[in-house]
Nucleic acid binder design. Structure first.
Lengths: 161, 161
DNA sequence: TATTGTTATACTCTATAACTATA
DNA sequence: TATAGTTATAGAGTATAACAATA
């Protein structure tokens, strides 16, 4: 197995361009452009959500649980590419906040079905509204058609990777 | 200061789409699309470079040093949004490999100028060729004009963040 | 006093391995 | 035996703080 690969950036400290610096090959790389965009989104996500413990991954987990009631942890692990203990920890986080509950499976008693609680539904609703506003902010210089184009072009990259 | 935010994914394990899963809001978010694209690039970078210790950040560091001879560590720290000890560690990595050298500054003896060695130039040349091939592979389903469009649209996001 | 770089330390995230319980 | 989930452990990466040298 490959060793772990972290992608941390001191939040808010990364500048996509600095005057007087020659970026060499980096400026012509799609990969580096995507990285720049990703860091911008990432930073703004935390500003918008304003709760450092809610990471994009934790947010995505809550969205997926909301959209797929009864999901099992092993599926979350597959979905986001985290090992099983990582899925345990993701669910623990939201369970401690009272947003999700583990229900013992009827058919297979090794696994749980994960469900939103009432509080979870409300929190998710609020979070989704915040994230939608953050999206609007981040794409404020794009027309609707440009936004569609961007998502289509990205799909051409990740859907065949 | 905000706490650290990691963006790790078990390399190669993340799947951008899984059958039978409802992605809910995530499918309509530009931010999640960029994340999917970024993970694809990240995974393929490691496959292409085939040396786990060479991360995209370390590669970018070598590129920037090559394009800006005499760069100081504090500038690398600013450039990539890492704290100063992070810059020390980045330079240590390449110095141990014999690819860069620290030269004591003539004007300001607090700082070093960082320069590629002969080996560093050769390794950088090789790495850049590998990364260019990786880029071609990742964008193989995009025409040249689509590639340009993608980079332009991303720039509209990160240049005003 | 402020800045550059280093070292020591602490913290987060997450993979691996070992375990329990079910199948 | 294989799988779902948990717990314990270890490692990578990087921020903060304290320090030395220089400005």
């Amino acid at each position: 197995m490959l060793s772990k690969k972290k992608q941390t950036v001191n939040p808010g400290k990364f500048k996509s361009k600095i005057e007087g610096i020659n970026y060499g090959l980096l400026d012509s790389l799609v990969g580096y452009s995507i990285r720049r965009g990703q860091i911008s989104f990432y930073d703004d996500f935390f500003k918008a959500v304003n709760e450092p413990s809610i990471t994009p991954l934790r947010f995505s987990t809550l969205v997926i649980i909301g959209a797929n009631p009864g999901l099992r942890q092993v599926q979350i692990s597959d979905l986001f590419g985290v090992a099983r203990p990582g899925a345990t920890s993701l669910i623990d986080y939201w369970e401690k906040k009272g947003c999700v509950e583990r229900r013992v499976g009827d058919k297979d008693r090794r696994s749980y079905g994960i469900y939103l609680t009432k509080k979870g539904s409300e929190d998710l609703e609020n979070l989704q509204n915040i994230v939608k506003a953050h999206e609007d902010h981040m794409t404020r210089n794009l027309s609707n058609s440009e936004r569609e184009t961007l998502m289509d072009l990205l799909k051409k990259i990740y859907s065949e990777a």
